[in-house]
Amino acid sequence: MNCEKADKLLMDSLMGALGAEERRDLDEHLASCERCGEEAAEMETLWHELGRLDDSRSEVPSDRLTRRFRLALADFETNLHETSRPRFSEWWAGLWTARPAWQAAFSAAVLVMGVLLGAGLNSRQSLNEELDELRAEIETMSRAVTVSLLKHQSASERLRAVSWSRMSGGDDKVLAALLDSARSDPNVNVRLAAVDALAGYADQGSVRASLMDNLELEKSPLVQLAVLEAVAGDEGLRNGELQRLKEASEVDQTLLDYYAAQAESL
């Protein structure tokens, strides 16, 4: 046995982990090698001194330690029993956290429902909005078409424009264009159609005044009759209107006589 091996076995010897044969070899080496012998003696002393550290101190922990642990254990036990009987909310919360698959499914269902509901509401709303927008666009377009068509060269196109004007409602621009046509369109049929279209708005002050003004210029008795029918309606001419017409030489005498007789009968 060499010194290195002896050094290794020394600790095993102190730990009581040596076999009989190994111990005999070690003892032989320590007896023959002075340096290893001294070192082994020092280590052995240290090992035993280390053991005596324990002999000289109180080994037993105080009773306070046991009492403290008993109290802590009782606390722990109480808390454990309290938490082992869960209230409904805790049971529910436990179920919620214990089933991630359910959580995911429920969340997904809510999400899908939300998306569908939102899409449904939005689409209905946006459909209505779009329809309104379309309607407004069509009206604007028909007005523009009406106004521009009323200035068309072809009389038949101007007639079509008058019939279009009925679709675009009582827009100021359309009415103004119609009044213009009723007054100055060179074609009698267009003037007649325009007056016919304006008949519905004859109760509006400005339309009525414009139509009355037309009578002073209008030479066609047909148009004169149409205007007078539109203005007078069932109620007849208003005070002063017949007098004004009598002074205007253009209006046909037969028509004037007819309306004078009507005014008297009313």
């Binding site: 102190l14 009581g16 012998g37 082994a40």
Partner: peptide, 11 residues
């Protein structure tokens, strides 16, 4: 010669 005392160490 030092006497190496051994103990069970596992009383």
């Amino acid at each position: 010669m030092p006497v190496i005392t051994t103990e069970d160490g596992n009383g």
